[in-house]
Nucleic acid binder design. Structure first.
Lengths: 230, 230
DNA sequence: TCATTTTTTTAGCCTAGACTTATTTTATAT
DNA sequence: ATATAAAATAAGTCTAGGCTAAAAAAATGA
């Protein structure tokens, strides 16, 4: 006699947990500690929430063994990721936000907007496939482009690669990379990947050389440029 | 030794109460019942919240006598009203929202955005002075244009008036008025204000006649057009 | 003025989602 | 194999913000 689906939307806390599990969780289950560290809440709070997430059908959870998303949980996570990346795109491209500022604002907004807003915003933005630092935007149906990029630290000298995305972990790195035009889409020639100090030297399309230390190089994700598209 | 001001931002519940008191409260204090009806919460919850709002310095409250905003409360209310009206403007003008949909979305968003977002959005929109249905947008400093408009129901036959705003209480009325181009800025000649059934007949700038029944006429707010701006 | 109705408050309870402290389980390193 | 360290859970507490039911105050109208 009732609301089987279309029930209640999930709270923003629940969303935060689901998203955290999602982007930790490529490999199996997310542990209490990992989620606790990421969300800056106590491990006890995470244990507690894992039980509730399971009751909501969002994760499978076994004590002492961590939680992994169900199909429903994955769908919910991708909905939030879609929102987040579309909102970031809007803030950066149309409101003049810097990399520094954008993450926090998007984090709050993604819990407040409706699906209707999200789709109208996508329309407004021209249905972008990637956000400004290269991360793919899931479709409204929950499909996510597979990501086969690898870090510049793992590239081979002599290869030609195209920047696929730059990590958004550290905003000041993003600013540095943007200032030197090391942005998604750029093609680079890898000149040297030095064993000793992990410095990677590349040459860009304009002939500019860049030497990137370990942390910077590992923030740039690339894909091989296919030999020749004849 | 501490955070005297700049403490914590107010919760969205607190914001809802403050805003409710604000737009009830032209005349003195808002009663428990009025707020309860508007926010769809029990009177007991309102009583309870009035005490807390007073502790936060947002209202003055005396038992059985209602709550009225302090200066701080008024500032907070105007901040939210500014956000709300800017967001509505964006949704209507850039995302293609209809009058029907816009209010609910803006209501949720106004609690999620930062001051920084608000000002960037104002910039994006070209610092509008009024939202699309004519309500004035408070400045970032909290100044609100005085509103000396009156309802078309109270107009005198023979006068020329300019539409200042249309009430946003009923979205379908808004759609009707918009479809007939009875929007803020239009100049009307009042032909007849009928005693018996309160029907108001006007002629617009294009010579079109409109007869508006009581509820429609009382949703249209106008100001006299000064005789001649020589 | 006094009885009745309306409004408001009080008291007690509930839920989500945090927290801390103590205990238990699992993992690690001798 | 066992001692220790790390991680997870259990138990109990807290706050915000709701709720209901009952009591008290104010307003209304005969």
């Amino acid at each position: 006699m009732s609301n089987f689906f279309l029930d209640r939307p999930f709270s923003s806390s629940v969303g935060d947990y689901v998203k955290a599990i999602w982007d930790l969780g490529g490999t199996g289950a997310a542990s209490t500690k990992e989620v606790s560290d990421r969300l800056l809440v106590s491990p006890a709070s995470v244990s507690n929430m894992f039980v509730r997430l399971q009751e909501m059908g969002l994760v499978e959870y076994e004590r002492y063994r961590g939680a992994s998303l169900t199909d429903l949980g994955r769908i919910e996570a991708l909905r939030l990721v879609r929102r987040h990346r579309l909102i970031e795109t809007f803030l950066l491209q149309h409101l003049g936000y810097s990399w520094q500022e954008v993450h926090e604002e998007a984090e709050r907004l993604e819990h407040a907007v409706s699906d209707g807003f999200t789709e109208r915003l996508a329309e407004f933005l021209g249905h972008p496939g990637h956000d400004p630092h290269g991360d793919p935007i899931p479709t409204a149906e929950g499909a996510l482009e597979p990501d086969d990029s690898f870090s510049l630290s793992d590239a081979q000298a002599g290869n030609r690669v195209r920047i696929y995305k730059v990590s958004d972990e550290d905003a000041s790195m993003l600013d540095y990379l943007a200032a030197h035009n090391l942005v998604p889409g750029r093609v680079l020639e890898v000149r040297e990947v030095r064993k000793f100090d992990a410095v990677v030297t590349v040459r860009d399309e304009d002939g500019e050389s860049h030497s990137l230390g370990e942390s910077l190089a590992s923030s740039v994700f690339v894909r091989s440029v296919r030999p020749s598209p004849v």
